[in-house]
Design a protein around this nucleic acid. Sequence first.
DNA 1: CACGCAACTACCGGTCTGCA
DNA 2: TGCAGACCGGTAGTTGCGTG
Length: 254
Amino acid sequence: FKKLFGQVTDHLVAEDEVLVVALDDVNYLFYDAEASDTLYSLLRAHEAHTGARIGVIVISSDPDLDVIAELDGRVQSVFRPEDVYFPSYDTEEIVAILRERVKRGFRDGVIGTEELDRVAGLTTETGDLRVGIDLLRRAGLRAEMRGSTEIAGEDVDAAYEKSKYVHLSRSLRGLADSERLLVDVIARSDGEQAGTVYEIFREETGLGYTRYSEIVNKLARLGIIDADYAELEGRGRSRELSLAYDADAVLDRL
DNA sequence: CACGCAACTACCGGTCTGCA
DNA sequence: TGCAGACCGGTAGTTGCGTG
């Protein structure tokens, strides 16, 4: 990193250029607690490499995440961004976007208005356009498998059983071995207390509580598991760990 | 009602290891 | 040899119950 970054900043100084870095989906950096270090390197580059000018644009797709508040003080003091808020797509906009995809991806008449509305409705429910696009693809393939040139309502419904998990598949794919193992343990002991789950986790991995706690937090922030403080748990407080998805769906994708 | 304690979580400094 | 990532131990902080 140091070597590469040094080359970049040297180039900026030599050519008298300004680098603008756009970080799409930054929320994922927060889930890994990497956001502050990343922004710090970029925004304070001029301290280590005099004359290097770097600006940052950050794009978050998690409305519950307060980007500025979650950053370190040392980053907050140099990162004073302008906020631009983009509201999520409404059903009408989703339909328009999906219709455009349909036009490009399918022959005329492959999907009717009724079926497209159904896709749009399911997409609105999950709040993610990726679900809708995946849904079109799967429904189309399913119709083709049946030897039909038209997508039927049941193609959409059957495809949705897979498409609704695009988030899950994507999240799981990015996990390290020990993280996947913990997901596996939680899937098999759903709803247990943090301490109980740790016992099993330690037996299988030999890792310490610190690492365990960090992984639990990461999985919770990714939305793979729920880790809520349980009410009335004898002494002190304890978190209850459970999957945010259907256990079989998770185990299938591990 | 203050206090200690159990059962956790959060954080920090540091070691170990693999890689180029 | 230098670096980055994974991991650990120690310790401080949080919470709510039991106790005198």
